[in-house]
């Protein structure tokens, strides 16, 4: 039997930009180098960072892990892109260990932006043990 773990998150882009401006280490602590490179080349980088933040948080929710501070797990969930531009999730470290523990073998992510908001859903699948 397949077990499905789902997570969704929505981020206010202005709020994220405000935090980035006030806390010098925020962007480099939350986003990987590849994510920063991708987003900072965009016309509105904060909209793209907000989308990635939403995807990371949606993935955490799907993993059943609640954020409670400046958690390095945010760096361990990386949002990359296929050649066609479709977002993909890569898990490392503790995030990967949790996924392995729960028997997760498949994952999909979707991100969308509109106005001042970014939203993401993540679905993780695995065989129920």
């Amino acid at each position: 039997m397949i077990k499905i773990h789902q997570g969704v998150d929505m981020v206010n882009t202005s709020k994220l930009r405000d935090i980035c401006m006030r806390h010098e280490g925020f962007v480099s602590e939350i986003f990987t180098e590849r994510e920063r490179e991708y987003c900072m080349l965009k016309k509105n980088p904060y909209q793209h960072l907000a989308g990635r933040f939403a995807a990371k948080e949606a993935c955490l929710k799907a993993l059943g892990w609640g954020l409670q501070g400046i958690d390095s797990i945010m760096q361990e969930i990386e949002v990359l892109h296929s050649p066609s531009g479709k977002p993909e999730l890569q898990l490392k470290g503790w995030a990967r260990k949790l996924a392995t523990k729960f028997g997760i073998t498949g994952r999909t992510v979707s991100i969308s932006h509109s106005g001042d908001y970014a939203v993401s859903t993540v679905i993780l699948t695995g065989e129920k043990r």
Partner: peptide
């Protein structure tokens, strides 16, 4: 919400000149 947790923690770190944990205790236990 999650962004608020980050913001609150950064503000506290700046106020006291400390670095709070980046890994929750359950992760350290494992």
């Amino acid at each position: 919400e999650s962004l608020d947790f980050l913001d609150i923690n950064y503000r506290i770190e700046q106020t006291f000149g400390i670095k709070m944990a980046r890994h929750f205790i359950l992760e350290h236990i494992e």
